[in-house]
Design a protein around this nucleic acid. Structure first.
Lengths: 107, 107
DNA sequence: ACAATATGCAACCTTTTGGTTGCCTGTCAA
DNA sequence: TTGACAGGCAACCAAAAGGTTGCATATTGT
C-alpha cells in the first residue's frame, strides 16, 4: 500500500491518472502529448512508479505499450479510514453536491 | 487537494490516522505514546501537516489539544478516479472480501 | 508564586524524490 | 537492410521532505 500513496503524492502522476481516466489505454507518446511541460523520460518514470503501485496496468503491443487505469487500490484507500455507516453518509453528501453543481451548470 | 495526497504519502502520518480512527480525539501526548519510535516534535510536525490538509480537526482544551480524524478528504479521493458504476462494483467486491475474512477468523 | 505538564517554533542535517541529459534496444515500413 | 519511430536504462543534479536538538510559551495543581 505504501507504493500507492507515494505514487499519488505527485501532481504529475495524478494528472496522468486523470488523462487515463479520460481516455484509457494510451501509449507513452500519447500521454506525453497531453503533458507538454515534461520530457518523455520524466513521464516514463512516473508511469513506472504508477505501474509498480499497481495503479496502472500495461499491455505491450508491438513496439508500443498501452496504459490502463486500475481503480482498485484507490478504492481500498477509503476502506482504511471510513466506516461502513460513515461511507454511505459521505456518499449521499457528495452525490447531493454533484447534483447541485449539475443544476448550476444547466441554468 | 495536493496537501491531502502529500499528507497521506507518509507512513507515520497514516499510522497517526489509524490511531485516531481507533480512538478519536487524542492529544499530542497520547498519540506520542502510541508511536514510541518518534520524538514528540516529529509527531507534532506530522499532525500539523495532517491538520493543514484538513485530514484532522483540532480543538484546544486548556493546555491540551484534541485531534479528530476528518474522513471527508479521503472520501473525495475516490470521487476523482472511480466512476459511479465502478464504485458499486468495487464496493460489492470488497464487502465480499471482508465477509470472507470474517468467516475465516470465526472458524 | 512556582514547578510540572502540554505544546509550539526554528535552525539544522540527511535522505528521498523529481527531473534532466545521453545513450541503448526493439519494432515497423519502404 | 536501413532509417525512423516507440520505448528503456543509467548517471547525475537540485529541491523537497522527514527527523533531530534546543529553546520558548502557556496552562495546571499545590
Amino acid at each position: 500500500m505504501d507504493a500507492v500513496f507515494k505514487a499519488l503524492a505527485d501532481e504529475s502522476r495524478r494528472d496522468l491518472l486523470d488523462h487515463l481516466r479520460a481516455d484509457n489505454g494510451q501509449t507513452l507518446g500519447q500521454l506525453c502529448a497531453g503533458l507538454p511541460a515534461m520530457t518523455r523520460q520524466a513521464v516514463s518514470k512516473h508511469l513506472g512508479i504508477l505501474e509498480e503501485a499497481n495503479l496502472v496496468a500495461t499491455v505491450k503491443r508491438g513496439r508500443e505499450k498501452l496504459h490502463y487505469l486500475n481503480p482498485v487500490p484507490i478504492h481500498e484507500i477509503g476502506e482504511r479510514w471510513i466506516g461502513k455507516f460513515e461511507r454511505s453518509r459521505l456518499q449521499a453528501l457528495s452525490d447531493m453536491k454533484n447534483a447541485l453543481e449539475q443544476e448550476k451548470s444547466d441554468e
